[in-house]
Amino acid sequence: MSLTFLLLMLIALAVIIGIFTRKLDLLTYSEPDKNGKRQPNGMKWQPATFIFVAIVAALLQPMNYDVISVGHKGLLINLLGDKRGVSYTEEVSGVVFYNKYTQEIQEIPLDQRHIEYPESIIVAKGGFPCPIKPSFNYSVKESTAADMFTNLRSTYTKGGLEAIQEGWLNNAIIGAINDVANRHSIDYLFNNRETYEAEILSEVNKRIGKWFLVSQLKTNIQPPKAIRQSIEDKATADADAIKAEAQARVAQADAQRKIQLAKGDSASIVIRAQADAKAISLKQQEITSTYVEYQRVLKWDGVMPTTVLGSGSNTLYQMK
Protein backbone atom coordinates (compact mmCIF):
# COMPACT_ATOMS: atom_id res chain seq x y z
CA MET A 1 0.00 0.00 0.00
CA SER A 2 1.53 3.29 -1.13
CA LEU A 3 1.63 6.56 0.78
CA THR A 4 -0.35 8.27 -2.02
CA PHE A 5 -3.20 5.82 -1.63
CA LEU A 6 -3.26 6.39 2.13
CA LEU A 7 -3.45 10.17 1.64
CA LEU A 8 -6.32 9.84 -0.82
CA MET A 9 -8.16 7.58 1.64
CA LEU A 10 -7.68 10.18 4.41
CA ILE A 11 -8.99 13.02 2.20
CA ALA A 12 -12.06 10.97 1.23
CA LEU A 13 -12.71 10.07 4.86
CA ALA A 14 -12.43 13.74 5.94
CA VAL A 15 -14.89 14.87 3.25
CA ILE A 16 -17.43 12.18 4.19
CA ILE A 17 -17.23 13.03 7.88
CA GLY A 18 -17.51 16.77 7.11
CA ILE A 19 -20.64 16.26 5.02
CA PHE A 20 -22.39 14.06 7.56
CA THR A 21 -21.57 16.42 10.45
CA ARG A 22 -22.43 19.43 8.25
CA LYS A 23 -19.13 21.04 9.15
CA LEU A 24 -18.13 20.98 5.51
CA ASP A 25 -20.46 23.18 3.49
CA LEU A 26 -19.89 22.58 -0.20
CA LEU A 27 -23.21 23.71 -1.71
CA THR A 28 -25.02 27.06 -2.15
CA TYR A 29 -28.81 27.24 -1.77
CA SER A 30 -31.60 29.38 -3.29
CA GLU A 31 -33.94 31.65 -1.32
CA PRO A 32 -36.61 29.79 0.67
CA ASP A 33 -39.85 29.12 -1.26
CA LYS A 34 -43.31 29.69 0.17
CA ASN A 35 -42.94 26.45 2.12
CA GLY A 36 -39.60 27.55 3.54
CA LYS A 37 -37.59 24.97 1.59
CA ARG A 38 -34.27 25.88 0.00
CA GLN A 39 -32.92 24.09 -3.07
CA PRO A 40 -29.18 23.67 -3.78
CA ASN A 41 -28.26 25.69 -6.86
CA GLY A 42 -24.44 25.67 -6.92
CA MET A 43 -21.14 24.79 -5.23
CA LYS A 44 -18.94 26.82 -3.02
CA TRP A 45 -15.65 27.06 -4.85
CA GLN A 46 -13.43 27.68 -1.85
CA PRO A 47 -13.89 24.30 -0.05
CA ALA A 48 -14.18 22.47 -3.39
CA THR A 49 -10.94 24.03 -4.56
CA PHE A 50 -9.26 23.08 -1.31
CA ILE A 51 -10.35 19.43 -1.70
CA PHE A 52 -9.20 19.39 -5.34
CA VAL A 53 -5.82 20.83 -4.45
CA ALA A 54 -5.44 18.28 -1.64
CA ILE A 55 -6.18 15.41 -4.04
CA VAL A 56 -3.71 16.71 -6.64
CA ALA A 57 -1.09 17.20 -3.93
CA ALA A 58 -1.61 13.62 -2.72
CA LEU A 59 -1.22 12.32 -6.26
CA LEU A 60 1.90 14.33 -6.99
CA GLN A 61 3.60 14.21 -3.63
CA PRO A 62 7.01 12.48 -3.99
CA MET A 63 7.19 10.48 -0.79
CA ASN A 64 6.43 6.81 -0.38
CA TYR A 65 7.18 4.14 2.22
CA ASP A 66 7.98 0.45 2.31
CA VAL A 67 8.33 -2.22 5.01
CA ILE A 68 11.36 -4.50 4.69
CA SER A 69 10.17 -8.09 5.11
CA VAL A 70 11.74 -10.48 7.62
CA GLY A 71 14.48 -12.58 6.01
CA HIS A 72 15.28 -9.92 3.40
CA LYS A 73 18.04 -7.37 3.00
CA GLY A 74 16.65 -3.90 2.26
CA LEU A 75 18.53 -1.60 -0.13
CA LEU A 76 17.71 2.07 -0.70
CA ILE A 77 18.85 2.96 -4.22
CA ASN A 78 19.45 6.56 -5.33
CA LEU A 79 18.35 6.77 -8.98
CA LEU A 80 20.11 10.07 -9.58
CA GLY A 81 23.63 8.84 -8.85
CA ASP A 82 26.42 9.42 -11.31
CA LYS A 83 26.36 5.65 -12.06
CA ARG A 84 22.58 5.24 -11.90
CA GLY A 85 22.56 4.23 -8.27
CA VAL A 86 25.76 2.21 -8.20
CA SER A 87 27.53 4.70 -5.95
CA TYR A 88 24.47 5.43 -3.80
CA THR A 89 23.17 2.20 -2.27
CA GLU A 90 22.20 2.23 1.38
CA GLU A 91 21.21 -0.73 3.53
CA VAL A 92 17.89 -0.18 5.35
CA SER A 93 15.46 -2.16 7.50
CA GLY A 94 12.01 -1.80 9.07
CA VAL A 95 9.74 0.97 7.76
CA VAL A 96 11.52 3.14 5.21
CA PHE A 97 10.30 6.46 3.73
CA TYR A 98 11.85 7.50 0.43
CA ASN A 99 11.38 9.76 -2.57
CA LYS A 100 9.63 7.67 -5.19
CA TYR A 101 10.91 9.86 -8.05
CA THR A 102 14.59 9.74 -7.16
CA GLN A 103 14.89 6.58 -5.03
CA GLU A 104 13.72 2.99 -4.97
CA ILE A 105 13.66 0.10 -2.49
CA GLN A 106 15.00 -3.35 -3.34
CA GLU A 107 14.53 -6.37 -1.06
CA ILE A 108 17.10 -9.16 -1.46
CA PRO A 109 15.89 -12.57 -0.12
CA LEU A 110 18.40 -14.19 2.24
CA ASP A 111 16.72 -17.58 2.63
CA GLN A 112 18.34 -20.76 1.35
CA ARG A 113 17.04 -22.01 -1.99
CA HIS A 114 17.26 -25.40 -3.68
CA ILE A 115 18.05 -25.43 -7.39
CA GLU A 116 17.89 -28.32 -9.86
CA TYR A 117 19.13 -27.47 -13.34
CA PRO A 118 18.01 -29.44 -16.41
CA GLU A 119 20.34 -31.96 -18.01
CA SER A 120 23.34 -30.58 -19.88
CA ILE A 121 26.55 -32.00 -21.35
CA ILE A 122 30.10 -31.51 -20.06
CA VAL A 123 33.33 -32.84 -21.59
CA ALA A 124 35.88 -34.84 -19.58
CA LYS A 125 39.59 -34.95 -20.35
CA GLY A 126 40.12 -36.73 -23.64
CA GLY A 127 36.91 -35.41 -25.18
CA PHE A 128 34.39 -37.76 -23.55
CA PRO A 129 30.94 -36.08 -23.29
CA CYS A 130 29.03 -36.81 -20.09
CA PRO A 131 25.45 -35.79 -19.20
CA ILE A 132 24.98 -33.99 -15.86
CA LYS A 133 21.95 -32.72 -13.97
CA PRO A 134 23.38 -30.53 -11.18
CA SER A 135 21.51 -29.66 -8.00
CA PHE A 136 22.58 -27.51 -5.05
CA ASN A 137 21.46 -25.14 -2.30
CA TYR A 138 22.42 -21.49 -2.27
CA SER A 139 21.70 -18.24 -0.45
CA VAL A 140 22.79 -14.62 -0.74
CA LYS A 141 25.44 -13.46 1.73
CA GLU A 142 23.91 -10.72 3.83
CA SER A 143 27.21 -8.85 4.17
CA THR A 144 27.68 -8.53 0.40
CA ALA A 145 24.06 -8.30 -0.77
CA ALA A 146 24.48 -4.63 -1.73
CA ASP A 147 27.60 -5.38 -3.75
CA MET A 148 25.83 -8.27 -5.50
CA PHE A 149 22.96 -5.99 -6.48
CA THR A 150 25.39 -3.34 -7.69
CA ASN A 151 27.18 -5.77 -10.00
CA LEU A 152 24.16 -7.80 -11.16
CA ARG A 153 21.62 -5.01 -11.13
CA SER A 154 20.53 -5.26 -14.76
CA THR A 155 19.72 -8.96 -14.30
CA TYR A 156 18.17 -8.60 -10.85
CA THR A 157 15.79 -5.81 -11.86
CA LYS A 158 14.42 -8.00 -14.66
CA GLY A 159 13.29 -10.85 -12.41
CA GLY A 160 14.99 -10.87 -9.01
CA LEU A 161 17.02 -13.86 -7.86
CA GLU A 162 15.12 -16.14 -10.26
CA ALA A 163 16.58 -14.23 -13.21
CA ILE A 164 20.09 -14.47 -11.68
CA GLN A 165 19.90 -18.21 -10.96
CA GLU A 166 18.66 -18.98 -14.47
CA GLY A 167 21.27 -16.78 -16.13
CA TRP A 168 24.45 -15.67 -14.42
CA LEU A 169 24.45 -18.33 -11.68
CA ASN A 170 23.66 -21.11 -14.13
CA ASN A 171 26.62 -20.16 -16.31
CA ALA A 172 28.95 -19.97 -13.30
CA ILE A 173 27.94 -23.40 -11.92
CA ILE A 174 27.99 -25.26 -15.25
CA GLY A 175 31.26 -23.54 -16.19
CA ALA A 176 32.92 -24.63 -12.94
CA ILE A 177 31.74 -28.23 -13.36
CA ASN A 178 32.98 -28.34 -16.96
CA ASP A 179 36.36 -26.76 -16.17
CA VAL A 180 37.06 -29.24 -13.36
CA ALA A 181 35.94 -32.16 -15.54
CA ASN A 182 38.43 -31.10 -18.22
CA ARG A 183 41.28 -31.68 -15.76
CA HIS A 184 40.54 -35.37 -15.15
CA SER A 185 40.06 -38.56 -17.12
CA ILE A 186 36.62 -40.05 -17.33
CA ASP A 187 37.64 -42.96 -15.08
CA TYR A 188 38.65 -40.50 -12.37
CA LEU A 189 35.28 -38.75 -12.49
CA PHE A 190 33.39 -41.94 -11.69
CA ASN A 191 35.90 -43.62 -9.40
CA ASN A 192 36.44 -40.47 -7.30
CA ARG A 193 33.10 -38.73 -7.51
CA GLU A 194 33.22 -37.36 -3.97
CA THR A 195 36.64 -35.80 -4.56
CA TYR A 196 35.53 -34.49 -7.96
CA GLU A 197 32.47 -32.75 -6.51
CA ALA A 198 34.57 -31.30 -3.68
CA GLU A 199 36.86 -29.78 -6.32
CA ILE A 200 33.82 -28.34 -8.10
CA LEU A 201 32.53 -26.77 -4.88
CA SER A 202 35.94 -25.18 -4.31
CA GLU A 203 35.94 -23.80 -7.87
CA VAL A 204 32.37 -22.51 -7.49
CA ASN A 205 33.27 -20.67 -4.29
CA LYS A 206 36.13 -18.97 -6.11
CA ARG A 207 33.72 -17.69 -8.74
CA ILE A 208 30.59 -16.80 -6.79
CA GLY A 209 31.60 -17.17 -3.13
CA LYS A 210 31.85 -13.41 -2.76
CA TRP A 211 28.07 -13.03 -3.05
CA PHE A 212 26.56 -16.50 -2.57
CA LEU A 213 26.85 -19.43 -0.18
CA VAL A 214 26.64 -22.78 -2.04
CA SER A 215 26.22 -26.17 -0.35
CA GLN A 216 25.18 -29.79 -1.08
CA LEU A 217 26.29 -29.55 -4.69
CA LYS A 218 25.68 -32.75 -6.68
CA THR A 219 26.57 -33.15 -10.34
CA ASN A 220 24.51 -36.34 -10.83
CA ILE A 221 26.98 -37.13 -13.62
CA GLN A 222 26.24 -40.12 -15.85
CA PRO A 223 28.77 -42.05 -17.96
CA PRO A 224 28.46 -41.96 -21.77
CA LYS A 225 26.30 -44.67 -23.33
CA ALA A 226 29.26 -46.70 -24.64
CA ILE A 227 31.02 -46.63 -21.27
CA ARG A 228 27.78 -47.44 -19.50
CA GLN A 229 27.44 -50.53 -21.68
CA SER A 230 31.02 -51.61 -20.99
CA ILE A 231 30.48 -51.12 -17.26
CA GLU A 232 27.31 -53.22 -17.41
CA ASP A 233 29.13 -55.91 -19.43
CA LYS A 234 31.99 -55.96 -16.93
CA ALA A 235 29.54 -56.19 -14.03
CA THR A 236 27.78 -59.09 -15.77
CA ALA A 237 31.10 -60.84 -16.44
CA ASP A 238 32.16 -60.37 -12.81
CA ALA A 239 28.85 -61.75 -11.62
CA ASP A 240 29.18 -64.77 -13.93
CA ALA A 241 32.75 -65.37 -12.73
CA ILE A 242 31.64 -65.23 -9.10
CA LYS A 243 28.79 -67.62 -9.86
CA ALA A 244 31.11 -70.04 -11.68
CA GLU A 245 33.60 -69.91 -8.83
CA ALA A 246 30.84 -70.62 -6.33
CA GLN A 247 29.63 -73.55 -8.43
CA ALA A 248 33.19 -74.90 -8.64
CA ARG A 249 33.51 -74.72 -4.86
CA VAL A 250 30.20 -76.56 -4.47
CA ALA A 251 31.30 -79.24 -6.95
CA GLN A 252 34.65 -79.62 -5.19
CA ALA A 253 32.94 -79.93 -1.83
CA ASP A 254 30.54 -82.53 -3.26
CA ALA A 255 33.46 -84.50 -4.72
CA GLN A 256 35.25 -84.44 -1.37
CA ARG A 257 32.08 -85.62 0.30
CA LYS A 258 31.78 -88.54 -2.11
CA ILE A 259 35.44 -89.43 -1.63
CA GLN A 260 34.96 -89.48 2.12
CA LEU A 261 31.84 -91.61 1.73
CA ALA A 262 33.76 -93.99 -0.55
CA LYS A 263 36.59 -94.18 1.94
CA GLY A 264 34.07 -94.94 4.65
CA ASP A 265 32.41 -97.67 2.58
CA SER A 266 35.80 -99.19 1.71
CA ALA A 267 36.83 -99.15 5.33
CA SER A 268 33.59 -100.85 6.38
CA ILE A 269 34.03 -103.53 3.66
CA VAL A 270 37.59 -104.16 4.76
CA ILE A 271 36.51 -104.39 8.38
CA ARG A 272 33.70 -106.83 7.48
CA ALA A 273 36.08 -108.89 5.33
CA GLN A 274 38.60 -108.98 8.14
CA ALA A 275 35.87 -110.01 10.57
CA ASP A 276 34.63 -112.74 8.22
CA ALA A 277 38.16 -114.02 7.69
CA LYS A 278 38.74 -114.05 11.43
CA ALA A 279 35.52 -115.94 11.95
CA ILE A 280 36.44 -118.51 9.30
CA SER A 281 39.87 -118.92 10.85
CA LEU A 282 38.33 -119.49 14.26
CA LYS A 283 35.85 -121.98 12.84
CA GLN A 284 38.64 -123.84 11.01
CA GLN A 285 40.53 -124.09 14.27
CA GLU A 286 37.47 -125.51 16.03
CA ILE A 287 36.58 -128.14 13.36
CA THR A 288 38.47 -131.48 13.94
CA SER A 289 37.76 -134.99 12.66
CA THR A 290 36.43 -135.99 16.04
CA TYR A 291 34.10 -133.00 16.11
CA VAL A 292 32.76 -133.88 12.65
CA GLU A 293 32.10 -137.51 13.62
CA TYR A 294 30.39 -136.30 16.77
CA GLN A 295 28.07 -134.14 14.74
CA ARG A 296 27.21 -137.17 12.50
CA VAL A 297 26.28 -139.23 15.50
CA LEU A 298 24.08 -136.50 16.88
CA LYS A 299 22.22 -136.23 13.65
CA TRP A 300 21.79 -140.07 13.01
CA ASP A 301 18.20 -141.30 13.40
CA GLY A 302 19.15 -144.92 14.18
CA VAL A 303 18.23 -146.37 10.82
CA MET A 304 20.85 -148.08 8.87
CA PRO A 305 21.18 -146.95 5.31
CA THR A 306 19.94 -149.28 2.61
CA THR A 307 23.00 -148.85 0.57
CA VAL A 308 24.55 -152.07 -0.55
CA LEU A 309 28.03 -152.25 0.64
CA GLY A 310 30.70 -154.80 0.36
CA SER A 311 31.19 -157.53 2.98
CA GLY A 312 32.82 -156.33 6.04
CA SER A 313 31.85 -152.73 5.40
CA ASN A 314 30.42 -150.61 8.12
CA THR A 315 29.03 -147.08 7.67
CA LEU A 316 29.49 -146.10 11.26
CA TYR A 317 32.72 -144.63 12.30
CA GLN A 318 34.25 -146.70 14.94
CA MET A 319 34.65 -144.50 17.92
CA LYS A 320 37.41 -145.41 20.24
Score class of each variant (00 low, 15 high):
21 T>V: 06
209 G>P: 00
84 R>M: 08
245 E>W: 05
94 G>A: 09
128 F>T: 11
240 D>C: 07
281 S>L: 13
228 R>F: 09
23 K>L: 08
156 Y>V: 05
162 E>R: 07
249 R>D: 10
49 T>L: 12
108 I>L: 06
162 E>L: 05
41 N>M: 12
297 V>K: 10
308 V>L: 03
262 A>S: 11
297 V>L: 10
177 I>S: 01
163 A>P: 00
97 F>E: 00
219 T>C: 02
164 I>H: 04
134 P>A: 03
110 L>T: 13
159 G>I: 08
237 A>Q: 15
304 M>T: 08
253 A>R: 02
114 H>A: 12
18 G>T: 02
39 Q>H: 14
278 K>C: 08
278 K>E: 15
264 G>Q: 08
278 K>F: 06
223 P>Q: 04
154 S>A: 13
55 I>A: 14
285 Q>E: 09
104 E>S: 06
245 E>K: 15
142 E>D: 11
54 A>G: 04
313 S>P: 00
3 L>S: 07
235 A>I: 03
203 E>D: 11
136 F>E: 00
106 Q>C: 01
155 T>K: 14
100 K>M: 04
191 N>L: 11
88 Y>E: 00
246 A>D: 08
166 E>A: 08
67 V>N: 03
135 S>C: 12
251 A>S: 10
172 A>P: 06
282 L>I: 10
31 E>Y: 10
63 M>F: 09
239 A>G: 01
123 V>G: 01
32 P>F: 10
212 F>I: 07
7 L>H: 15
108 I>N: 10
141 K>P: 00
51 I>W: 02
8 L>F: 04
41 N>C: 09
100 K>T: 02
204 V>L: 06
248 A>K: 14
18 G>N: 01
292 V>G: 12
290 T>V: 15
131 P>N: 09
253 A>T: 05
67 V>L: 07
174 I>C: 12
22 R>Q: 14
175 G>M: 14
21 T>W: 03
161 L>C: 05
205 N>K: 13
137 N>W: 05
62 P>A: 14
2 S>D: 10
316 L>D: 12
23 K>C: 03
249 R>K: 15
97 F>Q: 08
177 I>M: 03
21 T>C: 04
118 P>F: 11
272 R>I: 10
167 G>C: 13
30 S>A: 15
139 S>H: 06
62 P>Y: 12
143 S>C: 00
124 A>D: 00
299 K>C: 06
228 R>W: 09
44 K>Q: 03
247 Q>W: 01
97 F>V: 13
91 E>T: 03
37 K>W: 15
208 I>Y: 07
4 T>N: 13
74 G>Q: 10
162 E>T: 05
139 S>K: 12
166 E>Y: 07
190 F>N: 07
109 P>S: 04
14 A>D: 15
137 N>K: 11
175 G>R: 13
105 I>M: 03
261 L>F: 15
65 Y>F: 14
33 D>V: 14
18 G>D: 02
185 S>I: 00
76 L>T: 06
211 W>P: 10
134 P>V: 04
119 E>C: 09
29 Y>R: 13
127 G>Y: 09
71 G>I: 02
280 I>E: 15
96 V>T: 02
227 I>Y: 09
311 S>W: 11
263 K>R: 12
173 I>S: 01
195 T>K: 08
261 L>E: 13
195 T>L: 11
